[in-house]
């Protein structure tokens, strides 16, 4: 059994409305657990509170109520600056727009930004920067200026910048949303590798269904609450509930559901990947042919 790494208890957050006294709740009493080394996707429509929730996990936003535990320690009590830095070092975050999260004018200096803030000595900085750039495959771009890189490359530099702090968990807040398909592939394969090879806990916030399908577990959020959760197979079998909150199932799963609607009896338990869907349709087709042969 994997150990629990991040845990929230009744975590809530509300934004202050423009007319002073009113508070708009964004996250409502959310209790979730993430275990160490897990790959979790959070799905939700725009405004479902998924990004806000992510920002609560490393206290970029301070929860109104509830408790947050990371790595066995409560993080919502009064934190000293050292403890806060430790939390942000442990739970890193990569944002949506690659342009808005690179600080320095040279790739390697940007990667060094986090560790520099943590005050590591120079030899250690060098090693961390080199390791992080190698992990995301950007070593040869170390002395480039960020604005000369493609979107996917910039996002990999941003990931390296977080990696250089040796986090145990990385939150991706719609990090592929602004990328072209090839950039998205680059980033996704990097995420997968970090999870499998480095054992880093991944929380990927997304509204791409195919991306969510790669995770071990999917949380579906709506209106600041956790709607339901489960493995990709479980979540994508609940198509109508997803549709009701403005989400959808992957296209291949959608095909299976449409065929069902057309009167073909297909199972909906395992539809998270196109391969599984194809297998499901093929099984039904061959079963029917066999049955037909017996009939005829």
């Amino acid at each position: 059994m994997k150990e629990q790494f991040v845990k929230t208890e009744e975590l809530s957050f509300s934004y202050q409305a423009e007319n002073e006294n009113e508070a708009i709740p964004a996250v409502k009493n959310l209790s979730v657990e993430f275990s160490s080394g897990e790959y979790v996707a959070i799905l939700g429509h725009n405004g479902s509170g998924k990004s806000t929730f992510a920002k609560l996990l490393n206290l970029i936003l301070e929860p109104v109520s509830g408790r947050l535990f990371v790595d066995g320690k409560e993080r919502t009590a009064e934190l000293s600056e050292g403890e806060l830095l430790d939390l942000r070092r442990t739970v890193g975050m990569v944002f949506q727009n690659p342009d808005n999260q690179l600080v320095a004018t040279i790739v390697e200096e940007d990667v060094a930004f986090g560790p520099e803030n943590l005050g590591y000595p120079r030899e250690e900085l060098r090693k961390r920067v080199d390791d992080a750039l190698a992990t995301v495959g950007m070593t040869e771009y170390a002395s480039y200026e960020p604005h000369r890189l493609s979107g996917g490359q910039k996002q990999r530099v941003a990931i390296a910048g977080v990696l250089a702090m040796t986090p145990r968990c990385i939150i991706f807040d719609e990090s592929t949303a602004m990328l072209d398909p090839s950039g998205r592939r680059e980033v996704l394969s990097t995420i997968r590798r970090l999870n499998r090879e480095e054992g880093i806990t991944i929380i990927n916030i997304t509204h791409y269904m195919n991306e969510a399908a790669e995770a071990d577990r999917i949380l579906v959020m709506n209106d600041g609450e956790l709607l339901f959760e489960g493995t990709p197979d479980e979540v994508f079998s609940r198509r109508d509930e997803l549709l009701a909150v403005g989400l959808e199932v992957p296209q291949s799963a959608e095909l299976v559901f449409r065929l069902r609607e057309a009167g073909i009896d297909l199972p909906t338990e395992a539809l998270s990947t196109p391969e599984k869907c194809a297998a499901c349709i093929a099984d039904a087709y061959f079963a029917k042919r066999k049955g037909g042969a017996v009939d005829g």
Binding site: N58, E81, R88
Partner: peptide, 27 residues
């Protein structure tokens, strides 16, 4: 301004807390 907000968040996520105790890669 939107970029500035994003950047401030990203910097905080990467443990920026002013120049105090900060080391440099390239000296």
């Amino acid at each position: 301004f939107n970029r500035a907000f994003d950047l401030a968040n990203a910097m905080e996520c990467r443990c920026y807390h002013g120049g105090e105790g900060r080391t440099r890669l390239n000296v």
